[in-house]
Each structure stands twice: as structure tokens, then as C-alpha cells.
Amino acid sequence: MIKLEHVKKDFIVNGIYTHALKDINAEIKEGELIAIIGTSGSGKSTLLHILGGMENMTSGRYYFNGTDISAYSPSEMHLFRKENISFIFQNFALMNKYTVYENVEMPLIARKIKNRKKIIMEKLEQMGIAEMKDKLPLQMSGGQQQRCAIARALVTNTPVILADEPTGALDTNTSKDILECFKAINKDGKTIIIVTHDMKVANNCDRIIQIEDGLIEDRK
């Protein structure tokens, strides 16, 4: 489903180059549940952003279902994301002046989906934050915000879900719940890629991609 060939990503800040990704080659099949692990600063988030079409790569090829999308224009990329990708950001990226309910509703509005209430409440209940639907993100704990962000990613029914540290702010029990939840969705045929520090989470996935200093390390 997804194929990366010689993907490179450089950041230039004040004339200083950071080679975040050096030469990434990877293949991900439909329906896989994949964990990306690596030390801090190794390039995990950057890789996930490129997979999600949130960021351009410096060079390399990205095939999605056989189509080369590396040279897509911003608007083509937008349509690609809208159809295929749900993204859970490391910092949740919730709109602070909107309630939990409104935050989760947003992707549905953007896709002009009707009968939103039922879908939203279902996901909120699944994440255990249904009774907080009228709270603002900043009135909730980090874990609750994270669950809100996950609920928002799950409402849209896209084939690929990308999650950057989805269990980072959660205790072990809740982490387990979330993981179970991901596994359940994965069983429905969705491709899920999770960036994580937590080896317990990683070991529960179908496959682990370890990335070190911008390169994929072979796992022994």
C-alpha cells in the first residue's frame, strides 16, 4: 500500500542543515499495524509527517497504492490526505476555543458528512470521554486531550491512521485500552502506524520499524 524509496528530509534553519531523514526505504502493506520506534530526535515524527502528506520531502519517492505522490501540488496533497489519512499529532492539535464535541465534529464537517451526532458520540464513548463533550481542551488533563485527539482521528473512517505518540500522556492501563482500540480498528482492515517510546506498545504491533539518526535500523 505504501512504499518509500530513498526518502530524504533536510531542515535548514538559519543556514544550518539538519538531516532529519537520510535514506529511508520501507514498504507497508494494507491492514498492517506498525510501530515506529527510535530515540528522541531520530526522525520518527518527521517520517510520520511525510507518510501523512503533512510535509514535503527533500528527495525520494512515495508511492501510495502504486501512485507516485511525491510531486503532488498542495491541493492534490490536501485531497490525498482528506481521502486517506487521519493524523494524531504529538501535541494533540486541538482547537482550544472549541469544545471536545466540536473538535471531533470538525473532520466530519470538512467532509460534509451528515448525521454527525451519532458517529461522534460513539467515538467519544469508545474513548471514555463522552461526559466531557462540552468541555474545552484546556479544562482537561493531557490524557483526556489525547483521547479527544484520537476520537477525532477515528470518526472519519479513512484507510490509514497515523499516530504520533498516542499513548505518551497515558498511564499503563489506559495505554492498554487505547492499544486494544487500535487493534480492533486494525482488524476492520485499517492500516495503522504508531510512533512510540513504549516497547510494550511496540511489541503488540505486527511489525516494528526502528529508526536511528535518520536511517532505518534492521531489527535483530
Binding site: S75, A93, M95, M106, P107
Partner: peptide, 14 residues
């Protein structure tokens, strides 16, 4: 900008 970005990432077009 952050709100616009969140909307953009969640399916709203520019």
C-alpha cells in the same frame, strides 16, 4: 494560524 492549520490537517481545504 494554529486553528487554520488544524482545520487544514483535518480536511478543510485552503
Amino acid at each position: 494560524m494554529r486553528n487554520y492549520g488544524i482545520m487544514y490537517a483535518n480536511g478543510f481545504s485552503v
